[in-house]
Write a protein that binds this DNA or RNA. Structure first.
Lengths: 396, 396
DNA sequence: GGCGACTACTATAGCGCTCAAGTAGAAGAC
DNA sequence: GTCTTCTACTTGAGCGCTATAGTAGTCGCC
C-alpha cells in the first residue's frame, strides 16, 4: 500500500542496496515533475501551496529524504560544517574545553540537520590546506576556526577563500571575518575586581602560552584593572599545562613579596598551582587566593573549590553553531542573486560582525573564605554550585 | 601553464565558484577517457602501470581530487563514519572519555581521508532512526556504536541493517556485530589483586549505573577475584557522577565494618570519594585506599594521586577507527562480487569478531604509600607518570 | 591463419538532484 | 479580442563521478 500505483512507469528499479525511493517516486505520486518536488521541499516559490502541501505529505508518507550527495553535486548546500584542530589527539583528550565546545556545536547543528566534520592536523599550513580542499571538494558549507593567534596566517587564507567562516576568539585580529568570542576583558575585570574587593593588593597573573589572542587580551586588561584599583599586578608566563603553572607558582610564593592572589589561565593550571601551595603549607584562601579563567567539574570538586569564570563551553559551541549557520544562509542568499527571503543588501555583509558571550564570575572558597563552609555532599551536586556560601555573583 | 592545452574541447566551463578541475580535465590531459582515470585513481585493474602513473602524475600536477559527492552519487563509498551519542551535550562536556575517544577516532580516520560524523540525540530510538537515515541517505559508510547496554535495542537494529557497524564494548551482548572493547575483567583483576597484594581484605566496589554492559562485567569479575583472594568484596551502586559517589562513600566509611579499599567506576567518582574521606579525616591510603577505573589528568594531579586503570581513550579511539575501516573495506569487497583483492570467503565474515584492548594498572599514592613521596613538580609532568615512586606496573 | 583468450582501454548510461529557460493557461489592461 | 503579465508549472541539461558493456589490438596455438 505504500508502493507507488505504478502501471505508468516501467519497473526501472531493482539495483537495491541502499537508497530506494527517489524524488522521481514522489513526483510520480504527486502527478508533477521532479523539479516541482524540488521546489516544494526546498521551500522555494514556484509551486502552489496546495501542491506543496500534497508533495510534502507524500514525501513524509514514503519516508523520502533527498540524497545529500545528489544535492551537493547539483549545487545545493552539503549541510556540513568543518572544524580543524591543529593539536595532537593526545592533547585534545586532556582538554575539557574542546569536548564541551564541540558538543554544543553538534547539538545545534544536528538539530538543523547539519553535521560537523572534524579533522586533526599537525600545523597551520595543513589546516589551511584542509580548508582549501574542503571547499574545493564541496565537503563543507562553512568553517569554524578555533585557537585564534595574534598574527594568524589562517585569517588571510580564509578571507581569500571568501566562503563562510567563523572565528572563535577576539575581538580583534580576525580581519574581516565574523567572530564569536568570550569577552576576556570583562572576565579579567570580574576576577580582578573580586580580588580587589576582598582587599588583595598584590595580584599575580600566571598566563599560558603567548601568541594566543585571548592571552594578550587578558594581559592588557589585567594590568589596566589592577592600576585602576591601585593593586600591584604582575604578569608571568608559564605555558599551558600543569607543570609550567606549578613551577611558576612555586617561584612566586618563594619570592620576597609573594602575591596574595593568583589568577591562572585554566583549570588545570589553577589546580596545579593550588596543589603546590597546599604542599608548601600555604593556606588557601587565607594566605593566597586562587582563581581561574575556566570553570569545570574539577574546579567545583577541588578542595577548596575554585573561584572561576564560567564560560560554559557548551553554550559557547551552541552560539558558534548558530552564527555559522547564519553565515551559510547569508552566503547562500547572496549567491542566488541578491537574497531570496529578506531584501538585505549584500554589501552590508562586509562589516566584520562580532558576537560576544558574557562571562560570569563564580565565587568559591579558593578566594572567598565565606564560601568555604559547605560540605562536599552539597557542593558536588550535579548542578553548578553558583549558590555556594550564598555569595554567588553574575556578570556586572 | 597549468591550464589544459584545450583547442580540442570547447570552453564548457565558466560556472566558477568552487570546483574547477574535474576528472575530464585529467582525462583530456592524459589522452584517455574519464573512465580510465577513475580506474587509475581508485587502484583498480584495467589500466597499464605506465598509464596509471601518468594519470596520477597529472592529477597531482593539477591538484585534482575527486568530488566526494559525485563519487557517492555514483555508488562509491562516501568516506565517512558515523557515531551517535545519546546523551545531553552538557553531560558530554564533562566527559573526559568522549573527547579523547573521538580525538583518537578522528586522527586515524582523517589520515585515511575519512571523516567522522557525530550526532547527539535524545533516545535510543532516535539513535536507531539516525542509523537508518544515515545509511538510507548514503551519508556514512559505517557506524561506531558506543555505550553498549545489557539488552541493547540498537544491536538487533544494526544487525538488521546489515551494514558495517562496530560496537564499542563487550565482550558479549553485541550479537553478531564485531566489537572493540577494553577487557574489564582483566582491569578488575589488576585492581583487586593490587589491593589484595597490599593486604586489603575488605574491598568495596562503588559502581555507576546498572544496565551498562561494562558495569555488569566488572561486578562479576570483582566478586570472582575477591573470592579467589579470600577478600570480602561488596558491591554498591551509586550512579555515575560525583554526588552519588560522594554519598555512597560517606555511607561506607560511616558503617560498622568500613572497607579498607574502595574501587570506583570513574575518575570523577573517585575524586569525589577521596574528598569525602579527606573531609572526614580519613587518611588515604593509610586508612582507606582508593582506586579508579579511569585515568585522566585529574587522577594524576590529585593529592594523593590516584591509582587507576589507564585505558588511553585516545588509543581506544584509534583502534576503533582501524577496525571500522576494515569492516567497511570488507563490505565493499563483498558487495563487488566476492572480493577484488584477496580471495576471502564472504561467509567467513559472519563470525562475530572481537578486538580487545589491554588495560594497564597505574599505581599511585592513593593505594600504595610507597608512591606517596614525589613532589608535585615532578608528578605533574606532561607525560603520564607511570614511573611515580618507582613502583609502576603494566598489565600482567 | 583463423580462433579464442587476454589486455587496455572507450563509450555510454546512469546516480538523484538542482536550476535556468521555456510554456500552457488564467487574469488583467486597453 | 489581442497583448501583456503573472502563476504554476515542465523541459532538459547538467553536476562529476562510477560501472557495465563493448571494442580494438596483441598474443598464443594447433
Amino acid at each position: 500500500m505504500s508502493t507507488p500505483s505504478t502501471s505508468s512507469s516501467p519497473a526501472r528499479r531493482g539495483s537495491g542496496r541502499g537508497q530506494r525511493v527517489t524524488i522521481a517516486d514522489i513526483a510520480a505520486r504527486a502527478g508533477v515533475t521532479s523539479a516541482a518536488v524540488s521546489l516544494a521541499v526546498n521551500g522555494r516559490p514556484g509551486v502552489s501551496d496546495a501542491t506543496r502541501a500534497r508533495i510534502l505529505e507524500i514525501a513524509r508518507e514514503l519516508h523520502w529524504e533527498p540524497s545529500p550527495s545528489a544535492r551537493a553535486l547539483a549545487g545545493a548546500p552539503v549541510l556540513s560544517v568543518g572544524m580543524v584542530l591543529a593539536r595532537p589527539a593526545e592533547v585534545l583528550g586532556n582538554e575539557a574545553f574542546f569536548g564541551a565546545f564541540s558538543a554544543g556545536l553538534q547539538e545545534v547543528l544536528s538539530s538543523r540537520d547539519y553535521s560537523l566534520q572534524m579533522k586533526i592536523v599537525e600545523s597551520a599550513e595543513a589546516e589551511i590546506d584542509t580548508y582549501r580542499r574542503w571547499f574545493a571538494q564541496r565537503r563543507v558549507d562553512g568553517i569554524v576556526m578555533v585557537d585564534l593567534q595574534l598574527e594568524d596566517p589562517r585569517i588571510p587564507a580564509l578571507e581569500e577563500l571568501g566562503r563562510p567562516a567563523l572565528v572563535i576568539g577576539g575581538p580583534g585580529h580576525h580581519g574581516t571575518l565574523p567572530s564569536v568570542y568570550v569577552d576576556d576583558a570583562l572576565a579579567t575585570r570580574l576576577l580582578v575586581e573580586h580580588l580587589a574587593d576582598l582587599g588583595h593588593t598584590r595580584i599575580a597573573r600566571v598566563a599560558g602560552t603567548r601568541g594566543y589572542h585571548h592571552t594578550a587580551q587578558r594581559d592588557e586588561s589585567f594590568l589596566a584593572v589592577c592600576a585602576e584599583r591601585g593593586a600591584t599586578g604582575t604578569l608571568h608566563e608559564a605555558g599551558f599545562g600543569a607543570l609550567g603553572a606549578a613551577r611558576c607558582v612555586a617561584e612566586l610564593v618563594a619570592g620576597e613579596q609573594p602575591p596574595t592572589a593568583i589568577i591562572l589561565d585554566s583549570d588545570e593550571m589553577a589546580l596545579a598551582g593550588a596543589h603546590v601551595l597546599q604542599e608548601s603549607g600555604v593556606d588557601i584562601p587565607g594566605q593566597v587566593a586562587i582563581a581561574s579563567y575556566e570553570d569545570s567539574p574539577l574546579a567545583r570538586m577541588h578542595r577548596p573549590p575554585l573561584t572561576a569564570i564560567g564560560r560554559s563551553a557548551v553554550e559557547y559551541g551552541r552560539r558558534a553553531a548558530h552564527r555559522i549557520l547564519e553565515l551559510i544562509e547569508e552566503d547562500r542568499g547572496a549567491h542566488r542573486g541578491g537574497g531570496a527571503a529578506d531584501g538585505r543588501d549584500a554589501a552590508e555583509d562586509a562589516r566584520p560582525e562580532l558576537r560576544a558571550i558574557e562571562p560570569e564570575l563564580i565565587i568559591r572558597a579558593s578566594s572567598d573564605p565565606r564560601a568555604a563552609t559547605d560540605p562536599l555532599l552539597l557542593a558536588v551536586d550535579g548542578d553548578p554550585d553558583r549558590t555556594v556560601g550564598g555569595s554567588s555573583a553574575t556578570q556586572g
